[in-house]
Design a binder for these strands. Sequence first.
DNA 1: TTAGGGTTAG
Length: 564
Amino acid sequence: MITTGLAHHTFPLSRLLLFSSLPPLSSTLGSSYPTSIFNQIPNPTIFLYNTLISALASTNNTHIALSLYSHLLSHKTPNPNNYTYPSLFKACGSHPWIHHGLALHAHVLKFLGSTYDHFLHASLLNFYSKCGKLELSRYLFNQIQDPDLAAWNSIISAYAHGTSTCSDDASSCIEALFLFDEMQMSLIRPNEITFVAVIGACADLGALSQGAWAHAYIERHGLELNRFVATALIDMYAKCGCINLAIQVFDSLPKRDTMCYNSMIRGLAIHGLARPAVGLFNVMDRDGVAVDYVTFVVMMCAYAHAGLVDEGRRCFNSMNEVYGIEPKIEHYGCLVDLLGRAGRLDEAHEVVWKMPMRPNAVIWRSLLGASRIHGNMELGELALRHLTELEPESGGNYVLLSNIYANMNHWEDVRRVRKVMKDKGINKMPGHSLVEMDGEIHEFILGDRAHPRSREIYAMLDEMGRRLHEYGHKPSTQEVLFDMGEEEKEDALSYHSEKIAIAFALVASDSTVPIRIIKNLRVCGDCHSSAKLISRIYGREIILRDRIRFHHFRYGACSCLDYW
DNA sequence: TTAGGGTTAG
């Protein structure tokens, strides 16, 4: 009966639920358990165990799968084999349950020694990458002599995903693209799964031409534009500043699921297109596509970026009232952000105190950011106190507070904050800007002179400075951290990575194409006002992606309408 | 007969 049930994926879970009440694997390994089903089967084979464990693991019943594995261990025979572990590692990786996975790894060594096969090896690689142990994954990958497609996909995905947990570091995405190159040289043909990872890496890097190449490859080689690939493409085009191409992909799909919609709404939101985002949400709702909690995260983002406070609030309230979705901490974060940015600091503060869960760092950072924009030092200090408890090592939080003081010319306080940072050995995350030019990605940091065309770039920076001055640009020096002289501050501003990137693009690119820049932090006020003017002076469209959203500079104005 | 690789938000 059990095997028949499995074949139809209607395995009677209720009969195995007794396993789920068992303690977790870490405390059960090697112990013996009374069980009903397996005790009723005389001499269950390892095949039967493996089949059940796999079915349980792939239906997200990790705990029961692990308990069944414990049951297997509690008997002398049969012994686990090569087929037993991959599904367990996969399930542990999806949570991820690192301690259970580590225990399993120890068991692999105990039961199989070093004789396990490449399937198991690759599943270990994958498990460690899901737990964020990229170096370990790479080590395991390097041990594989002739990696097959799945092994390549595992390692490319691992690197492509590396950036999302560490948004200051583009290098893991670049490594993903290098690995993809290597894979092609080894004559392994990529499939849809490879491209989901590759396109994801391009999205994070803002590497439009590589992303578009991947899209063309998919079409040329008849790969399927399935929902994974489609979502990745929509996301990539949106994050590379080509919202129209994202819409084109979205419109071309015969069927759209929740994730496609979420990705498209998110794309519209980061481009400040709140009205189309609301329109799409309504279509989604009308067409009976399930909305989920991510849909509301992205909708709240759309409202926040456009400053549509009351509508955003209504959207938040409708989650529970209309859709029966309980707001999570992310939604409260969006609400605080929405109110705070709009200057409704008291309301934002009230949300923080009244929310049903303990506010996390994201919430306090939103409040701190809002305090900075609206110059509320008291609230800023309060938010930072909570933030430093939760994230004692993060320099960005101190920088935000320091900016509040600098904005108000409280240089003594700026010095105090800087001293705390210095004493604690905390550094600000360095800002960098990426520009893609003819398929190559150029990275610039503050005051960067490492680029081969550095002389031309700095000559252009000088020229930009002169022309900005002629057009009446007054550098907004409030956001410079230190109480240096005005002239020095202006210098510090003019060598911000995004300005260097713009100068490089003016020097090196065809004057008819838009300048595309990806910045890892938020754009500063001075760079923002300079970019607006530069778009007018040089007649160039500048599309700048910062950590949160896009700015399209055209004819001296920005698509964010200076609200960010 | 049983095993590994993929999407959005934060």
